[in-house]
């Protein structure tokens, strides 16, 4: 990790601690918990997109695997939520191997389609296997996580816990990219041939990164289950996977910090939009969640066309560009 990563983590930590003193509305704390869960998934996805150069359209399904593992093992088998979370992570890792090995042994982007298909199947199973998953009704009564006597049953407790997990996840991911393996992955990005010639086992690394990112998503799903205490198939559809890809792309996929920024911005966006819904109505637009699909599609397209490095890196170059474009003009004139 570099010095600025430590500074970044310090800033993030300070913000995480400070925010509850500014917002103590439980609804907004809840939104920030979901933001943290998205952050965690996006950090993993950013490893995959930015460092392994692959897209997954099935991360929502890994979240679902984590969530359903937690829900089922705690409610039906009476496992501790921690053990269930671990089991979910193992299951996700195994599924990642099954989906990833055939697709990642090859060059190209077969993974995107394979994960899309896997995601569709998970969604179908979640709805159709009513006996196990409860079908569309879902599963309720999922126990809270706890540390001994400290039960994470309030928004504020879970808020601190979930962001602590995000920071740990971020530190681990930063360790990874600043290692021999991370260097190998960045090398693949520069020249796959030269990386192979230097002995980098590209396929293996891509698979390992895919597994790691699946585990991140799975843990985020387990956290979701034990925070909400109720899950149904609704949130785990392909659209959510696309949203996660959008978050990573918006922030900037070649920087882990980009994933954090993108996840925060886009997780808060619906709140911002609905707080403006009054204004939308004034200009004759009836904002509803239905339009999110257009909004996210539009954002993803605009970022990829105009700011492919994402807000985090692109913002700086954009600023420089605007500065050059507008300030010298005044001097000349």
């Amino acid at each position: 990790m570099e010095r600025r990563d430590y500074i970044g983590i310090g800033v993030l930590l300070a913000m995480v601690i400070a925010v509850p003193f500014l917002v103590d509305n439980p609804y907004y704390l809840g939104v920030l918990v979901f933001t943290a869960l998205n952050c965690l998934t996006c950090i993993g996805l950013s490893l995959l997109m930015g460092y392994a150069g692959q897209i997954s359209l099935g991360h929502a399904a890994f979240i679902a695997l984590g969530a359903y593992s937690s829900a089922l093992l705690t409610t039906l088998a009476g496992w501790s939520p921690w053990a269930a979370m671990g089991a979910g992570a193992v299951i996700s890792a195994v599924v990642a191997v099954i989906v990833g090995v055939p697709s990642l042994r090859l060059k190209g982007h077969y993974l995107a389609m394979a994960t899309l298909g896997f995601s569709a199947i998970v969604h179908i199973v979640a709805i159709a296997a009513v006996d196990i998953t409860g079908g569309p009704q879902g599963i309720g009564g999922i126990p809270y996580l706890s540390f001994g006597d400290l039960v994470l049953d309030t928004d504020i407790r879970f808020y601190y816990f979930s962001w602590a997990v995000v920071i740990i996840g971020l530190i681990l991911a930063l360790n990874l990219i600043h290692s021999r393996m991370g260097r190998g992955l960045r090398a693949i990005h520069g020249s796959e041939d030269a990386a192979c010639a230097a002995g980098v086992h590209t396929a293996l690394y891509k698979i390992q990164i895919f597994i790691i990112s699946a585990v991140y998503a799975s843990i985020s799903g387990s956290l979701y289950a034990s925070y909400a205490t109720y899950i149904d198939p609704g949130p785990f559809d392909v659209m959510h996977s696309v949203l996660l890809v959008t978050m990573v792309a918006v922030g900037g996929m070649h920087r882990l910090w980009g994933a954090v920024i993108g996840a925060v911005l886009l997780s808060l966006l619906p709140e911002i939009l609905s707080s403006f819904s009054g204004y939308f109505q004034m200009i004759g637009l009836d904002y509803s969640q239905d339009y999110d699909i257009l909004i996210y599609g539009g954002i993803l397209l605009a970022i990829m066309l105009f700011l492919p490095e994402g807000l985090f890196s692109g913002g700086r170059s954009l600023f420089r560009y605007l500065y050059q474009k507008f300030s010298p003009a005044e001097e000349e004139g």
């Binding site: 897209i55 696309v242 699909i293 996210y296 599609g297 397209l301």
Partner: peptide, 10 residues
């Protein structure tokens, strides 16, 4: 590819 994904959801 990401662009085509974006177009598809649009």
């Amino acid at each position: 590819i990401i662009i085509t994904i974006a177009v598809s959801i649009l």
